[in-house]
């Protein structure tokens, strides 16, 4: 990684943390704490995005004190690889394809996080998701189903929104800035 890539990764991590806090402060039903990771994937590439995702996971734990999130670092790796692939395939060129690709990532991310949540934490992890899980369970759904359904509903909305926002950012990027990121040209 070059020094400049490193600076971009630091920026991505900071964006993850800050936008995640903004989403929480606005009481939105989504996390948005992977915008920076996806952005780094589109600007620099998969390796840098993985580093950004894992660093975000650690620093999120340090800042919030909630270290139970650490095992979900695996999800960050999946997100980084998926986003880089989506960028390579040109998914961010149009808003529609970006949202569709984000929807796909929602499925992949939830499929990764639901088992972690179920096996390591008995389905009780992040606040909003757990509330949905509990309601579904009270309605009679078996626990694994309830955990999965809760994860999917949140992740689908969250990741679609993240991809849409990144697509908008990339489109607003001035030309002289965009040309500095060779990943974008592909």
């Amino acid at each position: 990684m070059t020094l400049r890539d490193l600076v971009v990764v630091r920026l991505g991590v900071a964006v993850n943390l800050v936008v995640g806090q903004v989403a929480a402060a606005l009481l939105l039903p989504v996390y948005l704490d992977t915008i920076g990771t996806v952005l780094v994937a589109t600007l620099v590439g998969p390796r840098a995005a993985i580093v950004a995702g894992l660093t975000s996971q650690v620093l999120n734990a340090v800042l919030s004190g909630n270290f139970t999130w650490l095992p979900f670092g695996v999800v960050q790796i999946v997100i980084a690889l998926y986003a880089a692939l989506a960028a390579r395939l040109g998914a961010f060129r149009r808003l529609g394809t970006a949202v569709a690709a984000g929807f796909g990532l929602g499925i992949v991310a939830a499929s990764t996080s639901a088992p972690i949540s179920y096996y390591l934490f008995g389905g009780a992890t992040a606040g909003g998701v757990t509330a949905v899980t509990t309601v579904l369970r009270a309605l009679g759904a078996p626990l694994p189903v309830a955990v999965a359904a809760a994860s999917y509903s949140t992740d689908l909305l969250d990741k679609s929104l993240v991809f849409a926002l990144v697509a908008v950012v990339l489109r607003s990027l001035p030309r002289q800035m965009a040309v500095r990121f060779p990943m974008l040209a592909r």
Partner: peptide, 11 residues
């Protein structure tokens, strides 16, 4: 409200 917030922040 997120768009007008996130885009200038990142740029």
């Amino acid at each position: 409200a997120l768009g007008p917030l996130v885009v200038p922040l990142v740029l």
